[in-house]
């Protein structure tokens, strides 16, 4: 195990506001950051979900409730804009409409990117997911429908164009080679990820039996499997 920093690492002390005072006091190392003042609004939650999905090798549970809530908000904001425009907007209203529209665009981008990230994983691991009920519970209904029909189309085409022309003993699509390699690809949970600890975490058990202390603000490159529970509990974030 390697320790990049010799000392116990920098510590930024807590503060009251997450914004530093406007007059610069360059003497101190101590300024608060996002970890001292975590945002809980729905958009920040979506950012969190996006980051985890993007950085984790696994397929995470779909944030259906959150996505539904945000879609509802987007509808409401769109209606509000419609009303404001019909009523003949004042200059101040124009200003507000601009901001609201900008935010809707930003949130729309985040949602699309979040869903596209999941889709990439779903299509890469289709046949693994279809044969693993535990993973299927993490998918939305639309996603389940997607991978069912995707696998069907994919296999039909594979059999028609390639596999069907091979000798029968070579036609399996889910063969496992003697060395353990499988035709069905599945997420590599041992893959390394970057974590940033949101709080002091207890000692973490490493694969070789040693234990690792993870301190608040600690940044580690580490196997996803080792920290999976910490990620799911939200004690560390993926970076």
């Amino acid at each position: 195990m390697a320790d990049w920093n010799a000392a116990s690492g920098p510590s930024w002390s807590n503060g009251q506001s997450h914004l530093p005072s406007p007059s610069p006091e360059p003497t101190e190392d101590t300024f608060p950051d996002d970890l001292d003042n975590e945002r809980t609004d729905p958009i920040s939650q979506l950012v969190k979900a996006w980051t985890i999905e993007r950085c984790s090798p696994d397929i995470m549970a779909f944030e259906g409730e959150l996505v539904g809530k945000i879609m509802g908000y987007l509808d409401a904001q769109a209606k509000l804009i419609g009303v404001l425009k019909v009523d003949g907007a004042s200059e101040e209203d124009h200003e507000k409409i601009g901001l609201v529209q900008m935010e809707m665009d930003r949130v729309g981008w985040l949602l699309r990117s979040y869903i596209a990230t999941r889709q990439e994983k779903l299509m890469r691991y289709t046949s693994y997911i279809n044969s693993t009920p535990a993973i299927q519970t993490r998918l939305s209904v639309a996603e389940q429908t997607l991978i069912e029909s995707y696998q069907q189309i994919f296999e039909e085409s594979l059999i028609r164009d390639v596999v069907g022309n091979l000798p029968e003993e070579l036609q399996a699509l889910d063969e496992v080679l003697p060395d353990g390699r499988s035709m069905v690809s599945q997420p590599d949970l041992d893959k390394a990820v970057f974590i940033r600890a949101k709080q002091d975490c207890g000692p973490v058990l490493m694969p070789d039996g040693s234990s690792l202390e993870i301190k608040k603000r600690g940044i580690h490159l580490i196997s996803y499997r080792v920290v999976e529970q910490l990620v799911l509990r939200g004690e560390v974030e993926l970076a």
């Binding site: 990049w4 690492g9 301190k215 600690g218």
Partner: peptide
């Protein structure tokens, strides 16, 4: 030079710096 297959502590790095190192370090550790 300290990289091994288990863990690497890099406290103090910023998010953009992590992002720059990510593809290389993750492959190397793999």
């Amino acid at each position: 030079a300290l990289l091994d297959e288990m863990e690497l502590r890099m406290t103090g790095l910023g998010s953009m710096e992590i992002n720059e190192l990510r593809p290389f370090l993750i492959r190397a550790m793999g």
